[in-house]
């Protein structure tokens, strides 16, 4: 196509374009690494024993630093899960404080912790996983063991639609179907919304992992006279179990990081609550709220919460990576 006259030109284009792909990779890696490094450093700086053991404390509860571990302020009502939510504290309706005291509130470091958020995330995501597990696992088994059926294509497509649907949609649906019906924000509504998002992750990984089980193992079981279900439960699924477990862990990690559906279903809370039918705190919700907060102390807590969330996701993913790589190496 090109003549020798522009051989040098072609070599130049080759170099340039190959360089461009390297540059593109660099361009993308830099901001992504920056995010990880920022969250690691600023987030780790926000961590303290109190961060993991304490719950929300109003920045205005007290402006003297020595009472930070003390009781919540008098106006803070632990029975009211909505205390402090959605209200811009210190912006008008609170008693007028002197400029000095106000400045001290703003200058104060982080107060309180996110224990309620950590527990809430574990509960909401865990319950969501319980809803999602049976559907995801069995749909995955179906897609793998009856993979050539036409209905399998439909199921696979629907699973892809679910995983591609904006997470806010899951929140809207549960808000309409559950929250407005019972007129109550609740942790279990959040679990349902997260389950919608976790089902496709579990379905997809279960299917992929079962497909990795060599056909010869199924044939061997069939050769011994085992019916499909028996070979599935005693041969195929045990062989793929580590992979399926990693899929479930990935689903948990995805669910734990979702924020938008929780805004519409769980609402949030400032205290430790274990009642599934009441609003509950969650780590991503706290991250969001503390980021928007006018108080630098709460902003610091946002970095800390982001750090915990990211660690959860990174550790899960790295564990999965290690587990599947060992598997892959062995089966090959």
């Amino acid at each position: 196509m090109h003549n020798t006259r522009n051989y040098t030109w072609r070599k130049l284009v080759d170099r340039l374009m190959r360089g461009a792909t390297v540059a593109a990779t660099g361009c993308a890696i830099i901001p992504l690494l920056a995010i990880i490094i920022y969250v690691m450093t600023l987030g780790a700086a926000a961590l303290s024993p109190q961060f993991f053991t304490d719950v929300y404390q109003s920045p205005e509860a007290s402006s003297t630093p020595d009472t930070t571990t003390g009781e919540p302020a008098a106006e803070f009502n632990p029975d009211d899960p909505f205390a402090g939510i959605g209200i811009e504290e210190g912006s008008g309706d609170t008693p007028a404080t002197s400029a000095e005291a106000e400045a001290a509130i703003y200058a104060a470091g982080p107060k309180g912790g996110v224990l309620h958020g950590i527990l809430g995330t574990l509960v909401i995501t865990g319950v969501g996983l319980l809803f999602a597990l049976p559907i995801g696992i069995f749909a995955g088994i179906y897609l793998s063991e009856y993979r050539h059926e036409r209905f399998a294509t439909i199921v696979r497509f629907c699973s892809d639609v679910l995983s591609g649907a904006p997470s806010i949609v899951a929140g809207v649906v549960i808000y309409v179907a559950v929250v407005t019906q019972v007129k109550q924000f609740s942790a279990v509504a959040g679990s349902l919304a997260l389950a919608l998002l976790m089902v496709p992750v579990i379905t997809r990984t279960t299917e992929e992992m079962l497909k990795l089980v060599p056909e010869s193992m199924r044939e061997a079981a069939r050769g011994l006279g085992a019916p499909t279900w028996y070979s599935s439960f005693t041969v195929v699924i045990p062989a793929a179990l580590p992979g399926i477990v990693t899929g479930v862990m990935l689903a948990f990690a995805r669910g734990a990081g979702e924020t938008a559906p929780l805004i519409l279903t769980v609402l949030g809370s400032n205290v430790i609550s274990m009642d599934l039918f009441e609003p509950m705190a969650a780590l991503p919700l706290l991250t969001y709220r503390y980021t928007e907060s006018p108080y630098p102390g709460e902003n610091t807590l946002a970095w800390g919460a982001a750090f915990v969330l990211m660690m959860l996701v990174l550790v899960m993913n790295i564990l999965v990576r290690v587990a599947t790589r060992r598997r892959g190496g062995a089966s090959r």
Partner: peptide
């Protein structure tokens, strides 16, 4: 796999 709220935090404070 990083949750989008983390991109939000980083965006607000850093980017």
């Amino acid at each position: 796999a990083i949750p989008s709220v983390i991109y939000g935090v980083w965006g607000v404070f850093v980017f």
